[in-house]
Write a protein that binds this DNA or RNA. Structure first.
Length: 319
DNA sequence: CCCACTGAGTCCGATTTAAT
DNA sequence: ATTAAATCGGACTCAGTGGG
């Protein structure tokens, strides 16, 4: 974390490189989806004001994030005037009147992010391909937007160093880095989040796993990946770093069968597929699908399906 | 108290073998 | 390829422990 609000100006200005092409990011048509919102970046740049420069009262229909990376000045809001100095941040929401004056002696720099935030229609259905795994992003975006709406315009310290992300975005553009759009998108989101966080006290919740459901998923995946070789309950349990007894219970809970029967059923379904689609012998199928011998496969097959493997193949071929 | 887990002992069924 | 009989390992049950 960088110290915010340094009293002495650093000799080298961290954001100086952004002055090389001040409107670089403004020229990009940046729009993307975040959770249930469409984010359109209208402006994202570093601007410098000479000493005593006045931006007269104005307002926007959008959100404007103001960060002061260097210099000082004053902002006038409805609630009164507030001093600005290096490391500070304020947000002017839609229709918030503001006027800004840079210090009489020093020039002032401002990192400005101006975004249009459009609520998009709610998703239909819980798992469309477009929002796969997106639930937590939606929740976080919602929380961030709620926070931004409720936030006072009064300046505070940029405690979470949102400013840094302007540089990240700029550098991604400047270096034409691979995946630059994704980096810039992330930078913009980080600026929104870190701005919102300044007034946020609640601990956010993170997605927690249902460990047993997760273990069940891992176990069955492992079984399906390795069913062709001899598998024991213990081997799978060791793979998951749990006791074999515990795995038994988990399989019982989620599949309502034992480890052995799960494994056996899976092996048999694979054998059935091979019987239908190949001409391999029972012995070959046994070796291929995890049965110790042809005779044993035969025994198990008939026990479960009521017909011998050869008979089953015949039935399938007739269809 | 409930839940996750362990260990001992039992018994089932997976597997082999041998025969058809 | 199929079946029956024999064998053996390990899955399962149950009782008990420890942790939150």
């Amino acid at each position: 974390m960088y110290p915010a609000g340094r009293s002495s100006q650093p000799r080298s200005f961290l954001f100086a490189q952004m002055q090389e092409e001040p409107d670089a990011l403004d020229r990009l048509d940046l729009r993307f989806r975040w959770g249930r919102y469409g984010i359109q970046v209208l402006r994202c740049h570093l601007i410098s004001f000479p000493a005593g420069y006045v931006i007269p009262y104005h307002k926007h229909r959008d959100y404007e994030f103001h960060f002061i990376p260097r210099g000082k000045g004053v902002v006038f809001l409805q609630e009164g005037s507030f001093p600005l100095h290096t490391g500070m941040f304020y947000l002017t929401g839609p229709q918030v009147l503001h006027q800004q004056i840079s210090d009489q002696q020093d020039p002032m720099y401002e990192l400005c992010l101006h975004v249009n935030i459009v609520p998009l229609e709610a998703e239909h259905g819980p798992e469309t391909p477009e929002d796969w795994g997106n639930r937590w992003e939606m929740a976080e975006a919602d929380a961030c937007m709620r926070q931004l709406q409720a936030m006072p315009a009064t300046p505070t310290l940029d405690s979470y160093n949102a400013m840094h992300w302007f540089l990240t975005a700029y550098q991604a553009w400047q270096e034409r880095e691979f995946g630059a759009f994704t980096t810039i998108r992330q930078a913009i989101i980080q600026i929104l989040l870190r701005a919102a966080r300044v007034h946020q006290s609640l601990q956010p919740t993170l997605p927690a796993r249902n460990m047993n459901a997760y273990r069940y998923q891992l176990a069955t995946q492992y079984i399906r990946d390795n069913y062709a070789s001899p598998l024991t309950l213990k081997e799978v349990a060791d793979e998951l770093r749990i006791g074999s007894r515990q795995l038994q219970r988990i399989i019982r809970e989620y599949a309502n069968e034992t480890f052995s029967s799960y494994l056996e059923h899976y092996r048999l379904t694979q054998v059935c597929l091979s019987l239908t689609h190949t001409d391999l012998t029972v012995k070959e199928l046994a070796a291929l699908h995890g049965f110790s011998s042809g005779s044993y496969l035969h025994y198990v097959f008939k026990k479960h399906l009521g017909v011998t493997p050869a008979h089953y193949r015949e039935q399938q071929r007739q269809k």
